[in-house]
Amino acid sequence: MPLIALSNVTKAYPPRSKGAPPTVAVDDVSLEIEEGDVHAIIGYSGAGKSTLVRLINALERPTGGRVTVAGRDLVGLDERALRQVRRGIGMIFQQFNLFESKTVWGNVEFPLKVAGIPRAEHQKRISDLLHFVGLVDQAHAYVDQLSGGQKQRVGIARALATSPQILLADEATSALDPETTRDVLGLLRRVNTEFGVTVVVITHEMDVVRSIANRVSVMEGGRIVEQGEVFDVFSAPRTEAARRFVAGVVPTVPDADTLATLRSRHPGRIVSFSFADGGTDQSAIFLELNRRGVGFELIHGGIEDIRGRTFGTITLALTGDDASIDEALDRLTAVATIVKAA
């Protein structure tokens, strides 16, 4: 049974003005997230990602459908019972949302107080958490004295205080620079692998998906338009939306503009080779070209590695006599998808 299950969930906000249609932020979404997954939800701003994730910890109530967390149907629960459920689900935010009136220690202690955990246990729990996020020295600092990366670490420690089974991260790295992003993502990965916490990551950046998720859902206009293993969605996106996200981070067949530039700089035939899965050995291509006396130069693209499985597209400029090139390409259709530039 999945840890989190949404079935036909809809969230409509009442219209801003009378007579206008309601805003359907989440539109008939079904989604299952397995225990131990790092599940990314990617989409542009306004796609409904935040609303979707806030349905999981019942900060919002659905207007239709069913939300089940750890086997409990949230729709039937009253507010008091929902507060209990929320204690088992941590959440971190783009703007960190720390309590500025409290120290780092006070921020991490807050969920412990809320959950009614005996005061005697706070000391050990908080210092363990601060060790984990690397903020022991800042324990008694107020949060406005911290850098963005440190603030998010406090956010993570606070979210994990009551040892939740699930961590929701709503654009947790979108306000951070690339290096700090890497650190925070590394920490989230450890949360998943060391503590076995199921992590739901919301983002608009494919890089984030690639670096920590094993599954991904692509959201557009309140709907999940594509869903699958990260490798599959990256190597063979099925929808236009997924293709757009993937194109930004994965080397692809050059588009018309790029092709024109490449052509002006490189003589010979321009050919792209795509590998759909990890099986392809690039050296097979190079050997074959060599054997036929075809000269080649790598002019575009590259190879992606997602958890040890590779895929990608390389574009070569081939020089030599036409017959040899054609022969080589014929043979190579067995190992790669070949796109000959017109």
Partner: peptide
């Protein structure tokens, strides 16, 4: 007080009364 801070308090399961006295007013 930024709404996000209140949301963070809600997300750990705090009751409205606790949020008022230990988050909202101190903030």
């Amino acid at each position: 007080v930024r709404p996000g801070v209140i949301e963070a308090a809600r997300s750990v399961g705090a009751s409205p009364l606790r949020i008022i006295f230990t988050v909202l007013i101190p903030e």
